[in-house]
């Protein structure tokens, strides 16, 4: 079997991504204040061309950049019960969901995909911070279980891009139970001898950090990403002192032995494939632009 025969036909929406024309063509870098033209910014994977500040990137854009030819197949995630607690704060939970769906164009806070990276078949999962803070509820749990099962079935490694404020309060205890639940999924993957690589992106906090996001065989972070259990504000309130500059940032965690690597977003694809192919005992990757398969729809 070669890479063409197991090439997966992409879903239409991954090719004709519904990106609308941005209302504002210019984005101000929150770090250095440089005005960045939208096309320049998206070509640079939402990394500031001036100061290298990594801004948020949607799961769909990330996958388009990650997979060969921008082609990937979405893995179906089983639908959980909607609003199991009938949760209501100042707004009803279903209303918050609808608002998040409208704002992001996504169904939920996690996207699962299969595809090839420099012709290396993988399963990838990305969490969407723009969707209710990327919060982990039952859907996210289902997504991780589905991704792990798919990876085991196809004997592929799993790469997870984490970004979350933590557990989704609106699902109460059931969101908390996704910590052990996702851990079971990761164990099934590991027992099948498959690599699990976590990429921590800004920000990854709370119950997400304290479960599947810290259990990778290899832990990589994007530069300056905030990675923690308790957020800096909570700690400052508890210990009543100012925290040092860079506290809980990727580089700080690297220094404290909590990460394997801090890697620039633009170098991520290359690095992931290097690591995965070694862990999978495969030959070195053949890099470079690949010819688009003949049967792929035009982009």
């Amino acid at each position: 079997m070669n890479w063409i025969s197991n090439y997966v036909r992409p879903k239409i929406n991954s090719l004709f991504s519904r990106r609308e024309v941005p209302e504002n063509l210019w984005t101000k870098c929150p770090e250095c204040g440089t005005m960045l033209f939208h096309r320049e910014l998206s070509d640079n994977l939402n990394v500031c061309t001036h100061c290298d500040h990594h801004m948020a990137i949607s799961p769909r854009d990330r996958f388009t950049a990650l997979f060969d030819g921008g082609v990937f197949l979405e893995v179906k995630v089983p639908e959980p019960l909607a609003d199991p607690l009938h949760f209501r704060d100042q707004k009803k939970y279903p209303d918050r969901m609808k608002a998040a769906q409208k704002a992001t164009g996504e169904k939920e806070a996690m996207l699962v995909a299969e595809g090839e990276v420099f012709r290396t078949p993988i399963i990838a999962v990305a969490q969407d911070f723009a969707f209710m803070g990327g919060s982990m509820g039952m859907y996210v749990g289902n997504a991780i279980v589905a991704a792990a099962e798919r990876a085991v079935k196809l004997k592929r490694p799993l790469v997870l891009f984490a970004a979350a404020g933590g557990a989704r309060m609106q699902e109460g205890i059931l969101s908390l139970m996704q910590m052990p639940r996702s851990t079971v999924a990761i164990q099934l993957l590991k027992e099948a001898g498959l690599p699990y690589v976590v990429v921590l992106t800004h920000p990854t906090t709370g119950g997400v950090t304290a479960s599947y996001a810290m259990l990778g065989d290899v832990q990589i972070a994007e530069p300056n990403a905030l990675i923690c259990f308790a957020g800096p504000r909570v700690i400052e309130q508890t210990i009543r002192e100012k925290l040092p500059e860079g506290f809980q940032r990727a580089e700080y965690l690297l220094d404290h032995g909590m990460l394997d690597r801090v890697t620039h977003r633009k170098a991520m694809k290359d690095e992931l494939v290097t690591i995965l192919r070694m862990l999978m005992r495969q030959t070195p990757a053949i890099r470079g632009e690949l010819p688009v398969p003949a049967d792929a729809p035009a982009r």
Binding site: P180, T209, C228, F229, Q248, H256, G257, M258
Partner: peptide
């Protein structure tokens, strides 16, 4: 946090 609170919890689970 410096000594890996999140990781310790994840490993204990």
């Amino acid at each position: 946090e410096e000594r890996g609170q999140a990781e310790a919890i994840a490993r204990s689970t």
